[in-house]
């Protein structure tokens, strides 16, 4: 359960990171504007919250849990972003 929660939080944080990154916006052909401060703060907040929760609920395995969840989230978000980019490219 904790792993899943950590994974969700990391994924949310990384998705916000993607929304703040001009290169990622260009790739998905999304409108480039100044990212909202919610995204800019949220990308760090989500990752830190996941780390905090890992340490709070499972202190022995916290680092492993967080690092693993982060790695898998990167994979999930990058795959999702690639699918989104492809979809937007095809539907244009």
């Amino acid at each position: 359960m904790m792993i899943f929660l950590c994974f969700l939080l990391c994924s949310a944080g990384l998705a916000m990171q993607a929304l703040c990154e001009p290169k990622m916006l260009r790739f998905a052909k999304l409108q480039q504007s100044n990212p909202s401060s919610i995204f800019r703060i949220g990308r760090y907040a989500c990752l830190l919250l996941a780390l905090f929760m890992s340490f709070w609920f499972q202190p022995v395995t916290a680092i492993f849990l967080w690092a693993g969840a982060f790695s898998l989230s990167v994979l999930a978000v990058s795959l999702g972003w690639a699918v989104l980019a492809r979809y937007r490219e095809v539907s244009r």
């Binding site: 990384l14 990154e21 990622m24 790739f27 690092a67 790695s71 990167v74 990058s78 795959l79």
Partner: peptide, 28 residues
């Protein structure tokens, strides 16, 4: 970190796969 372009040119796509499979899993 999150840039994966599987439908780009072959070399670019493989490079992205290499980076996405490598960088996030570096601590491991």
């Amino acid at each position: 970190l999150l840039l994966l372009r599987p439908f780009a040119a072959r070399l670019r796509a493989w490079l992205d796969v290499h980076v996405v499979a490598g960088v996030p899993f570096l601590p491991f």
